[in-house]
């Protein structure tokens, strides 16, 4: 059915199918997009319960909007990212980093304990450094390097030009490098 289609075209087909009465399409869409949206919300809010609430709300809005969805609309994932980003902004509170670290601990069973500790320190370091960035820069860096979106997608979500996004990301990364420089030795990071 989806041969030759890009991931985003598949999402579009699924949302239109849902709007036309295909309930299974909702399940497929949820399985495809929920982990990404939840991860974004979690990193923004630093709390699993809040992230889940925001994710559920974003999807509810998607289901309600589905009958008005048109082929030329934004990509489903982009649309969802924009909604969840706004919901996070409304609900934003400074996350407790401890929650973030503890919650992440049991996720990757293949890592050795030493690797896990290193990763936890790196997460903490990056998290602290990101919190020093202005909101737009932090958001652009998160979308680009943690959510792994493209610059045009980020531009669409944030309502900016691609150049503005590039500039925000570059400035954000420069700032992060400065802040993280002090962590390098401590974390056993020797590159550069």
């Amino acid at each position: 059915m989806f041969n030759g289609s890009t991931e985003k075209e598949i999402d579009c087909v699924l949302i239109l199918a849902f709007a036309n009465g295909d309930r299974k399409a909702a399940q497929q869409l949820t399985e495809r997009l929920m982990p990404k949206i939840h991860a974004h919300a979690y990193y923004r809010l630093g709390n699993i319960a809040d992230a889940e609430d925001v994710t559920q709300e974003a999807f509810l809005r998607l289901w309600q909007f589905a009958p008005r969805w048109e082929q030329g609309n934004a990509h489903v994932s982009t649309w969802l990212y924009r909604v969840v980003s706004n919901l996070c902004k409304d609900r934003y509170r400074r996350p407790k980093l401890e929650d973030l670290i503890v919650a992440k601990e049991p996720t990757d069973e293949t890592q050795s304990p030493a690797d896990k500790i290193d990763d936890h320190y790196r997460q903490k370091a990056l998290y602290d450094a990101m919190s020093l960035l202005p909101e737009n820069q932090r958001l652009a860096v998160q979308f680009r390097h943690i959510d792994e979106l493209t610059n045009p997608e980020i531009a669409e979500i944030m309502g900016l030009s691609v150049e503005a996004v590039e500039s925000l990301t570059a400035r954000g990364k420069r700032k992060l490098i400065e802040v993280l420089a002090s962590y390098k030795t401590e974390l056993g990071y020797t590159h550069g």
Binding site: P35, Y42, D119, H145
Partner: peptide
């Protein structure tokens, strides 16, 4: 280079998503 330097931190953040 900047990306390389930061990628270690970004990767660490990505692997730990619950």
């Amino acid at each position: 280079n900047t990306l390389d330097e930061l990628s270690v931190f970004f990767e660490a953040s990505k692997v730990g998503v619950p």
